[in-house]
Nucleic acid binder design. Structure first.
Lengths: 214, 214
DNA sequence: CGTCGACGACCAGAACTCGCGTTGGGTCCA
DNA sequence: TGGACCCAACGCGAGTTCTGGTCGTCGACG
């Protein structure tokens, strides 16, 4: 899961990694992280054992578990042992990042800024709707994740393959043209108003920004 | 039972924990909590002994007991010893939180109302009935917890896995489709009237809100 | 300076997948 | 025995992906 580290570094987090359970315990002791992302499947100790030893040592660190898809048993064991959240594979990076932010927010006890804004566009993360010009805009799950990704990277240009990596499940092996299709859907829903916020940067990708006039 | 601490922290309570009976007595003396959640099974002293020593020391703190499944004997002992309530394992987070609020309400530290309302729907948390359009609606325990969870999160979208975590017992290992079944039951009972209050947000979860007119 | 070809982007519509609602039936207690 | 709970299965339709035609842009070349 190099992917996880890469994605979180890209988000600006300071990330350390370990390949084994014992390695993780070492790194956690040395690195003193604000939170831990832990795969249940590890070569030596499993994720649960790592959590158990952590709490036995009196370490109090929030844990996000990565579990096999739909494995209710893993989920329960994780939550019972004190994991703060879990995520079934395959997940999308957008979702991983959202959960990590949610955990950090929760542990800092400042209540969650449940909306993302750019210009006059608002994305409500509590209802999964967008708002623009006093209109409520319903989004499908993929549209929502894409818009969230664009807004988190406002003003930056993101390539189609970056988008695929972050918004789609990591095991998606289809064609990059879906991105174009979804950009088209989003434009119909949110760029029906002026000014347009989703811009094509030909040959590079897309960018959410205000139009430059010149 | 890290789960208990995690759930209550998430609800906004300030929580301290101990792993043993003696540890608990120490922490209670130092922390001076408004109430105590106490497992009957502890490595050294059992829960009853902890309560006995507390009252011997003149400490008056409300106690919620966690007992083994179906152990009527434990329940009786707990209550006669001055516990304020008990909860058999496995319990659901919703129930734990409700009991904690109930105890705090009784001791006047909490201001939780005994009825939840949304639009013309009323949920009486004392009688476990719902009221709508002058009709009394009886609910099964699971229906009640589900409705309560939806009403506590009114207008927000809650996912099926959030619902499972809060409404179902923590050792439930079935799949999320039970949630759909219970939503269906609830709709038959309370959304038989207009307007519908339980809404599906496809791909995200469910939300209790008034219908929006586009 | 104008034309042409190539490539990227856009988007409508078809095809397919999968999430959700509902129902009937089985199981486990009290 | 009845009620509460959970599961399995089916069908519908929303959501997602793919296909292919068209348009716009840019560089090359006459």
């Amino acid at each position: 899961m190099q992917l996880v580290a890469t994605a979180l570094r890209y988000e600006g987090f300071d990330v350390d990694t370990a390949a084994t359970g014992r390695g993780a315990l070492d790194r956690i002791a040395a690195f003193a992280p604000e939170m831990v992302v832990l795969d249940v499947m590890l070569p030596d100790l499993d994720g649960f054992e790592v959590v158990r030893r952590l709490s036995a040592d009196g370490q109090r660190v929030p844990v996000l578990f990565l579990t096999a898809r739909n494995d209710a048993d893993d989920r329960v064991r994780g939550l019972t042992l004190g994991a703060d959240d879990y995520l079934g594979k395959p997940f999308s990076v957008a979702e991983l990042v959202a959960r990590v932010h949610a955990i950090l927010r929760r542990t800092k006890i400042d209540d969650e800024p449940s909306r993302l804004t750019f210009a006059d566009l608002i994305l409500d993360t509590g209802t999964y709707e967008a708002l623009r010009a006093d209109e409520r805009i319903e989004l499908t799950p993929t549209e929502y994740r894409l818009l969230q990704y664009l807004m988190l990277n406002a003003r930056r240009v993101v390539s189609k393959s970056q988008i695929l990596d972050h918004v789609w499940n990591y095991d998606f092996d289809g064609d990059a043209s879906v991105v174009e299709t979804y950009i088209s859907y989003l434009r119909k829903k949110i760029d029906r108003f002026d000014p347009p916020l989703i811009h094509t940067v030909r040959g590079f990708g897309y960018s959410m920004r205000l139009p430059r006039d010149h």
